[in-house]
Design a protein around this nucleic acid. Structure first.
Length: 537
RNA sequence: GCCCUCGUAGCUCAGUAGGAUAGAGCGACCGCCUCCUAAGCGGUAGGUCACAGGUUCGAUUCCUGUCGAGGGCGCCA
């Protein structure tokens, strides 16, 4: 990478000029303003104090030296502002990204190996098996799946996991609700009042016992959820059953070990976790005085199980669960698992509007807008793209009507259209007898138009963007890149004809390389988001 | 009361491991098709980065406080 080359030449320049101390880490960044160059270093500003000379003076000295001894791939070094050293990269160096993208293709370009095959377990959705997935599950579903894809792309061994709370009181109530609806009776107090219960009860076989009803209901809910997730292209590696930990005594063992570690105690007829010892603000009940487990206890056993199977755990939880973070980390800490290996990502709420009007998420008692109906309304691609559009740290609002529209102001269409246009150029070129053939650097040198340079510059940043998205578990950074890159593609499309009068054969061939490389970039980005890259629209 | 996330253009949001003139899309206004999808491209207007302190050569970014929005503080799940 060119920035590595620049770093070592900076270091060399300091040595030659006798400037010390040389910092262990030299910081290279992309200047916000392109006229400042392709790369920039704040080296002079950073060391100015220690060296005892003004930053501008140091920057002047270093850039002067480097201009006289230009590293490979650098065209110009300059000092600017309060003491930045800016680098302008050569045209040839910029063109290299084309060769890389074309050689690696959509399955290789932008892939890194920072994960080194480490196992990361991503638990997300984990809806109760008592009903269909609803609007509230959408953001976590899209987010969890996207970070799993991104982490895979940077060399982690990613595992998608869904935790099913298939035991406990709420399953009893769910079963009783189904049973009541089956018999045409009123649902019990605090029961599941949703419309879907009536429908599901009618699908249920006659004459089942309550425990059989629960088993049927659980399986039915799971299947229903699986279908919805499949529509979104989300497939879990593991559906982990809470009940299975009763059968294999995992919960019991967790309780015993907490007691052995001195992290659990008895009080008022209940068993408590001394979570305050490990950073929580109060102790939490593990076993209620009636002998029933709280939600926390099986979840502790479950997380411990995940620790045994993975190097890194990521949980995607809704904002309403954030209060749960401290106690889970405390419990893991008590059991001797490093809480830093557990990342808990909280997703903030999403508000839906339709044509400017807020969409009420809960329709009536027990019924919430189903995720399925959102997918039906706006389509799979728009669902994924829109839910990934913004940082999960922020509350989000988006318009269903806009997301469903086939119009330029719809960001999904804007990006997909850029890909479709590139494909269209390829098809038209083929009709004219041109097919894309990988060219050499010198043959690509005809690509000098400002629009072409802009594409090269954006394309080059994709691997960095993927790395950042992985490091920060932030898929929306990839979304932003695809939107910016699509903008560059549309500009190129508009101003640079690939085939036609006045375009030389050499230029057509070079531009076809740019077209295919750009397609690769868009495809890589969209793949990571789980959005299709259409050939035609 | 305590905890979490957020507050950036009229609207929806990027940006911040401290850096140069704070960006995009939409909306408004003005241009651009005899030519690969005008489902597009370009331009103009629009900002006290909620507010007040602090740290720093430098703060939208870090710290403290205030205000505002949403969420959470159960022997519920």
């Amino acid at each position: 990478m060119i920035n590595e080359t620049i770093k070592s030449s900076l270091r060399q320049a300091m040595e030659q000029l006798g400037i010390s101390p040389i910092p262990p880490e030299i910081n290279m960044e992309r200047p916000a303003n392109r006229t400042h160059g392709d790369w920039s270093s704040n080296l002079a500003l950073a060391v100015s104090k220690k060296v005892g000379k003004p930053a501008r003076e140091l920057a002047e000295q270093i850039s002067g030296y480097m201009n006289a001894n230009l590293p490979e791939g650098v065209e110009e070094v300059s000092m600017a502002g309060p003491g930045f050293i800016n680098f302008k990269v050569t045209h040839r160096c910029l063109l290299q990204v084309l060769i890389e993208a074309l050689e690696k293709g959509p399955d290789g370009f932008g892939r890194l190996d920072i994960g080194k095959g480490r196992k990361v377990n991503i638990e997300f959705v984990s809806a109760n098996p008592t009903g269909p997935l609803h609007a509230g599950h959408a953001r976590g579903a899209c987010y969890g799946d996207a970070i799993a894809s991104i982490l895979s792309a940077v060399g982690f061994n990613a595992h998608r996991e869904f935790y099913m709370n298939d035991r406990g009181l709420q399953m009893q109530i769910y079963g009783q609700s189904l049973q009541a609806r089956k018999e045409g009776a009123a649902i019990p107090d605090g029961g599941y009042g949703g419309e879907y219960i009536i429908e599901w009860a009618s699908l249920m076989p006659e004459g089942l016992s309550l425990s059989e009803i629960i088993e049927w209901g659980c399986a039915h809910a799971k299947q229903d959820q699986q279908e919805t997730l499949a529509e979104l292209g989300i497939h879990f590696d593991t559906w982990f059953s809470e009940k299975s930990m009763i059968e294999n005594e995992g919960i019991e063992r967790a309780l015993e070990d907490l007691t052995t570690e001195g992290a659990a105690y008895e009080k008022d007829g209940a068993t408590w976790l001394s979570s305050t010892k490990f950073g929580d603000d109060k102790d939490r009940v593990l076993v209620k005085s009636d002998g029933e487990l709280t939600y926390l206890t099986p979840d502790i056993a479950y997380h411990r199980d995940k620790y045994e199977r993975s190097d890194w755990l990521i949980n995607v939880w809704g904002a309403d669960h954030h209060g749960y973070v401290a106690r889970m980390k405390a419990a893991m800490n008590a059991l001797g698992n490093d809480p830093d290996d557990l990342s808990i990502q909280i997703t903030q709420l999403v508000k839906l509007v339709r044509a400017g009007q807020e969409v009420k998420l809960s329709k009536r008692q027990g019924d919430i807008i189903e995720l399925r109906s959102i997918i039906e309304e706006i389509g799979t691609d728009a669902t994924r793209f829109m839910y990934l559009l913004q940082s999960v740290d922020s509350k989000q609002t988006f318009d269903l009507e806009l997301a469903a529209s086939r119009a330029m102001e719809n960001p999904v269409y804007y990006v997909q259209m850029a890909h479709a246009r590139l494909c269209s150029i390829e098809r038209n070129a083929k009709d004219e007898g041109f097919t894309q053939v990988n060219l050499s650097l010198s043959e690509l040198e005809v690509l000098t138009h400002a629009r072409e340079i802009e594409i090269l510059r954006y394309l080059e940043t994709l691997p960095e963007v993927i790395e950042l998205a992985a490091r920060e578990l932030a898929p929306h950074k990839i979304v932003t890149w695809t939107r910016d890159f699509a903008n560059a593609v549309h500009g190129f499309y508009h101003d640079c004809y690939v085939i036609g009068d006045g375009v030389s054969t050499e230029l057509t061939n070079a531009r076809l390389n740019l077209v295919v490389a750009s397609k690769t970039g868009l495809k890589v980005g969209l793949d990571l988001l789980g959005v299709t890259a259409p050939e035609k629209m």
